[in-house]
Design a protein around this nucleic acid. Structure first.
Lengths: 254, 254
DNA sequence: TTCGCGCAAATTGCATGCAATCGCCAGAAA
DNA sequence: TTTCTGGCGATTGCATGCAATTTGCGCGAA
């Protein structure tokens, strides 16, 4: 009978498995240093589950359940949950199980508004600092988006779309800005999964991307910023409309 | 002989102290619900120590030391440190003691740049949504700043200054934006403590505040945003100059 | 039938033990 | 004198135990 690994099993395995020189061995084996701490791995795994919608908004996150699911003990789980809470994907409730942040109309509106603003700032900076290599990468991503659009591949389209936004922000060469953007973006991704009808906007969205890339290419900060902010605003409008009927308009878990 | 409380002492005290009905009793005693979890208290306390400069940039944060200092066990300390790391006040190093984020020229420049951008966005939104009560509060804060300036009270001036910026951001009525702002602001505060010569700019700064308030009063988003962004930029310039000679120009802990 | 009370199970929050890991320092070799 | 190496102490990372708190439910009373 197979059974899921318990924390103890995992700990024992980890101990026995490699007498010593673990890191050296891993590096010499050509493995990418996967050696992140357990709580980081847990955070990444949980983020993924939440953003992909496998853990539904409002679902309560019970420590022992997650601990059994991931085969690690409660401690790193707790740390991971705290991390995700800080990023807005999880909501902590005093003396209660934390839960996946529910979708609330007002919060979603504010989220996209903030995201649009931050991307505008990033675009303005990026227009001043973007390199030829950045631009080339953006054009490649844009081409990829077009391909995935034509092939109708929803997931690939979304991934490429995400990457193009991320790349613009990174071109701003501002780490704190990129960090806050990443936090907001993952929450936006979570929301998007539950929105329908986004495909209707694909062609329009691609045109907007093209205009933004042109503005960046022309090193026009104001234009790039304005266009990107509006672009995000458009997406927000579609998402909000799509979700409007299906979530608590006021709040939830009241 | 007095000795600092150990985690065990504290735990025992907490257990013995209140047989039950703890919350009810506290509420009926009219106490504000101070009943935050230990890790939250610890985070707040540590944040304060860092922002006030009592824990110097680069200082290493050893779990047992902090645990003894705050009279709690390592677990909540660890959680608090993770939280502060997420906010950029603490830097985690693999398998080493975390440390207070050192001051690095490039990072500080980026930090204030991001802060300026976010405050611009906030000001634009605030100009559209600000209420009469908000404006009144801002005017009172501005008056307070003038008073503290004339009295030459450095700490009070800084506190009021911080509050006025915070209030403008809150007037934007956007929670995610306010949250990311708060994170960046606390790091900026930490940096400011080590910058000299900020007093030279007080009068100019007060004039800039007044212009920003006027723009908000006039409900002029572009003007308010532009002025606030430039204002933060000016502060950044002074801070950067002041710090330029006294920090690792490139990095540290290489 | 419905409301209230109290008990029990579920679950968090914190403390602590244990082992792996890292940095540091002494000592040896060049 | 400088550099490399081995072992030791310091410190983290994770697992787990224990108590407090909360919630849900059953039972009794109105």
């Amino acid at each position: 009978m197979q059974r899921p690994p318990t924390p103890t099993d995992a700990a024992a395995a980890r101990r026995r498995g490699r007498p010593r020189k673990r890191l050296d061995a891993a590096i010499m084996a050509g493995q990418r240093v996967v050696r992140a701490n357990l709580h980081e791995q847990a955070a990444e795994r949980l983020r993924d589950l939440i953003v992909r919608g496998d853990l539904a908004p409002g679902a309560s996150l019970v420590e022992v359940e997650l601990s059994a699911m991931l085969g690690i003990s409660r401690t790193p789980i707790r740390e991971a949950i705290k991390l995700l809470a800080q990023q807005g994907l999880v909501e902590l409730r005093a003396n209660r199980s934390p839960c996946v942040r529910p979708l609330r109309a007002a919060e979603i509106r504010e989220l996209f508004e903030a995201l649009a603003g931050i991307e505008r700032i990033a675009a303005e900076l990026a227009a001043q600092r973007i390199t030829a290599a950045d631009l080339e990468r953006l054009r490649a991503l844009q081409a990829e988006i077009v391909r995935e659009h034509e092939a109708g591949r929803r997931d690939s389209y979304a991934a490429a779309n995400r990457t193009i936004h991320r790349t613009i922000v990174l071109a701003a060469r501002n780490v704190p800005l990129a960090e806050v953007h990443a936090a907001l973006l993952s929450r936006a991704d979570q929301v998007r999964v539950f929105a329908l009808g986004l495909e209707d906007r694909w062609e329009q969205s691609i045109r907007e991307h093209q205009a933004i890339l042109d503005a960046l290419d022309a090193r026009d900060p104001l234009q790039a910023g304005r266009l990107l902010q509006e672009h995000v605003g458009q997406t927000a409008a579609v998402v909000t409309t799509s979700l409007a009927g299906r979530i608590d308009p006021a709040s939830s878990a009241a």
